[in-house]
Amino acid sequence: MLMLDPNVRNWVMIPITFAMLLIGVLRHLVAKLMRGSATAKIKSIQAKQLIQRSQYLRAHSGFLSRAAFNQRKEFFCDKEKGAFCQKVDPSLNPQQQMMSDPSMLSDMLTKNLTMVVPQIVTGAWVNFFFSGFVVAKVPFPLTQKFKLMLQRGVDLSSLDVTYISSLSWYFLNLFGMQGLLQLILGEKTFDDTQVMQQQMSMGAGGLDAPNAFKAEKDQLEMMQHNFRVAKFVELAAK
């Protein structure tokens, strides 16, 4: 067991945790101030509701007569006038939206910045000031593979993997703070871990209208209608 200087604990470990907590709270309050009112666009609501309506139609078609079902199927799938065959407004695609509307782009940019920049800045600060020494010991065993990741800057090959550098302490705090922040701030706070996952899959949040429409249309066209109401008569007569 290594003996570490208590000063390291007082001036590194706890301040990093404290700073991250405060930055988390500050960021949340700033985001709240900047949020403003979110007014939804009618076209995207309409698209979402159409999809929902089609889903209801497919799920509960048993309660509709064949004529009624075909009437609605035609409403959605007709080659010329069908709701799902209309040229979907390209602005509904979130990526297109970003390209075409400069103000929206800057809006999204500032939103992203307020979330991502504090993280980057804090990470850089931690790395700059507190590199080159061991900050803490994790209480659980890890394999040698983690050594490179957790001991960035400390070049001792014989050092136990459980001793981590300041940057890894930063990441540990990053992941662990979510629960505490949620408790303190009382609502769904911005989840850093989710942002990292989201950046892997583009187009999250906005409905990808053209593809969704096509998928629903195909499913509707393939559907077999089964009028289940007649069976209820038999059931009721028992």
């Binding site: 309660f63 007569s65 109401v229 007649a230 209820f232 008569v233 059931l235 009721a236």
Partner: peptide, 16 residues
Amino acid sequence: RQAVGYYSVVLDLTNG
């Protein structure tokens, strides 16, 4: 006749 069917559905939903 269709109406008969739907009334039967109601009977089922309200347990008669």
